[in-house]
Design a protein around this nucleic acid. Structure first.
Lengths: 109, 109
DNA sequence: GAAAAACTTTACCATCTGGCTAACTAATTT
DNA sequence: AAATTAGTTAGCCAGATGGTAAAGTTTTTC
């Protein structure tokens, strides 16, 4: 059961990768520019890019010697749906617990 | 920079752990009941619970020989904010790109 | 055509992760 | 008191992950 959600959440569980996403939200950029602010070796950084690409968060094209990277909107939706559903279910539960508590309150009064 | 988001997203990047969260959204349960549907050894399962607990997604209390586990609503909010912000930013970007495309369309007509 | 730039590939390493079995402790049940 | 139930602890393992350095490839640029 190697889900989309697995690779998606796995991809954004790393701070370097989240930083890349945040940067890319402002627009596409070549690898070297994306790499610059991070104090890690280039090949290490490329691995992070591959993880993001494998998770479908990012796509890239090479033109000449420059590879340009840009974000992909698609997979975010699914992840948000999961989180939303969970939050609704368990906030619902908390609400019901509160109602129960209030009811008990009234009964013991 | 070992962020909250790191451990949170890391925690929900595993299918077993997401399944536990989904189950717990219906109400608290003892470890053995949570374990039952998963075809893995108990100690392995306990590790998953520890990851969820360390990420603040879950809490548990032991009474007698039974440990009861329940979800914690708090950390979801932060994660959703991150995702929401990202989505807004880059959907915004996609919209702007579309406008640009339409403009070019008009100009070349 | 030589040098520089922008990646890529290769090979290696330590630590983390998810899995296991076996043995142990502490409560209930019978 | 003996057996059962419900977790816990300890120790091991294979593979993934995040990191490195060094050498190679393919454009550009000078």
């Amino acid at each position: 059961m190697t889900n989309n959600l697995d690779t998606f959440f796995g991809a954004i569980s790393d701070p370097t990768r989240r930083a890349v996403i945040e940067r890319l939200a402002e627009g596409p950029a070549p690898v070297s520019e994306l790499h610059a602010p991070h104090d890690i070796a280039l090949p290490t950084f490329m691995k992070h890019l591959k993880v993001l690409e494998a998770a479908g968060l990012v796509r890239s094209e090479k033109k000449g010697r420059v590879r340009t990277v840009h974000i992909e909107a698609a997979p975010l939706a699914e992840a948000e749906h999961w989180l939303n559903r969970q939050r609704r279910i368990w906030e619902g539960r908390l609400d019901r617990l509160q109602l129960l508590a209030e009811q008990l309150e009234r009964e013991t009064k």
